[in-house]
Write a protein that binds this DNA or RNA. Sequence first.
DNA 1: GGGATGCTTCGATTACCATCGAAGTATGAA
DNA 2: TTCATACTTCGATGGTAATCGAAGCATCCC
Lengths: 226, 226
Amino acid sequence: MKEGPDIALIGSLIGDPARANMLTALMGGRALTATELATHAGITLQTASSHLSKLEAGGLLSQRKQGRHRYYQLAEDEVGLMLENLMGFAASRGMNRHRPGPKDPALRKARVCYNHLAGDYGVRMYDSLIAEKQIEINGDDLALTPAGQSRIEALGIDYSALTKSRRPICRTCLDWSERRSHLAGSLGEALLTLFIDKGWAKREANSRAIRFTANGEKAFSELFPQ
Amino acid sequence: MKEGPDIALIGSLIGDPARANMLTALMGGRALTATELATHAGITLQTASSHLSKLEAGGLLSQRKQGRHRYYQLAEDEVGLMLENLMGFAASRGMNRHRPGPKDPALRKARVCYNHLAGDYGVRMYDSLIAEKQIEINGDDLALTPAGQSRIEALGIDYSALTKSRRPICRTCLDWSERRSHLAGSLGEALLTLFIDKGWAKREANSRAIRFTANGEKAFSELFPQ
DNA sequence: GGGATGCTTCGATTACCATCGAAGTATGAA
DNA sequence: TTCATACTTCGATGGTAATCGAAGCATCCC
C-alpha cells in the first residue's frame, strides 16, 4: 500500500503555479532575491516568503543572506536535473503554458539549465565531446578522458579546482527541448562560465535564453565540430 | 517570466496523496480497476473516480473497458520512467513515508518498475548485459548487439515481435533504490515476463516486490554473471 | 426481465492553503 | 538616533478542490 518514497510531497511543492514559476526562474542559474522571485511569480512579498520557506524546508532551495537581501538558489545540481527532466516530460505531453512565442526558438537554441548550457548548442557540445573521445561513458558515469583533460586545461579551465569539489565533474542532463542528453556537472558549469567570460555568449536579462555573439558562434563551431 | 513547459500541472497531479498512492500502485505493472485503486488510496469509489479522470485527462493514465470493469494503467513507458525518477529524487532527500519497514529490503532487492525488473537484481542484470557486450550505449540510445540478439532468441524471446512495436527495445531507467540505471523498454519487459513464465520469479500480491525462487536465483546468476 | 456489481455524475460539505493587509524584525544608510 | 529597505510573522479571508452520500448508467448473471 504505502511503498517507497513520498512523491506526493515534491509533487505538491512543484504543483503550485507560483512555486513552479519561482523554480523555473531559478533554472536561469542566477541567485534571486525574495522580491525578485515575488515579481516573477506575480504575487506579493508576503506570499512569496511563505512559498520560499516551504521550498527551502522541502530541500529544493537554499538561501544565502547578504546584507539585507536573501538570495535564493536551487539547493543542488540534482534539483536542476529533476526539474529539467519534469519539463521534458511536460513538453512531451504538450503541456505548454503558452503557444510557442517569439522567445521559444531562442530557448531551444541555447539556454541555461541551472548552471550549464542546454538546448541545441548544449546537445551539440555534448555530442562533439563524445565523438572526439574527450568524455566517455562508463555505465552510468561520465568521465573525462586524459585527452579531454588536457583539452580543457588548454582552454584555461582549472582542472584541479574541479576535482576538489565533491560534485561530479561530468554528468548527463536530459534536455527538454531536444529530448537528448547534454553535459552537466562542474565541467558543464565551467564551460558555460568560460563562454561568458570570453564574451562569446551573454545571458539575457529575465530569461533562461543565451545569446551567442558572432565571434562566439565561430569559436563554438571550431571547438565543437559536428 | 513564463518560459517553457508547465511543470505545475504535472506537479499538482502528482501532488495529491491519493493520486500519488494510485500512481505508486500502478508502478506495480498490473492494470488495476477503479475499486482496487480506491482501496490502495484509502478513499471511496466516488472520489477515486474523480481522481482517475483527472489523471487520464493529464495523460498519465490510460483506460481499458472490460465488461463492467475499467482497468487503469500508466499511459506509456515514459510515465513510469518519470515516476521512478521522481522517487529517486524523493528518496535522496529522505522523503520517505515510513521508517524503512520489513518490506523495504525486498523492494530494494527486486521489484517491478511498471513493466520491467528494478532494484539490485535489475541493476545487476543491466551491468552484466553491458559487460558482456550484449547491449551497448550509443550516445543516448541503448542498442542490442548481434550477440545480444541471438542470446535473447536462445532464451525463447521473439526478437521480431519486439521490433514491430514503435516502443524502443532497450532503454535505461534510473533506479531509485540503487541510484543507477537498469534496463527498461520492450526487452526489459520481455525479460521480466520470461522470468515469471519460467517460474523463476513471482510478483507479490499487493506490492511491487518480486520474489525469486531458489531455481530462479540460480538461473539468474548463471545468465547474468557478475 | 430482475437483481447485483462496477463505476460515474451530481450536489453539498468541509478542509486546506494561497493570498494579502498589517504589524514586527533585521540590516543598512544618514 | 532616525529613517528606509528587505523580509518575516500574524491574522483574516476567500477560493479551490478533495471528500462522500445519493442517485443514475452500464454490464453481467440468472
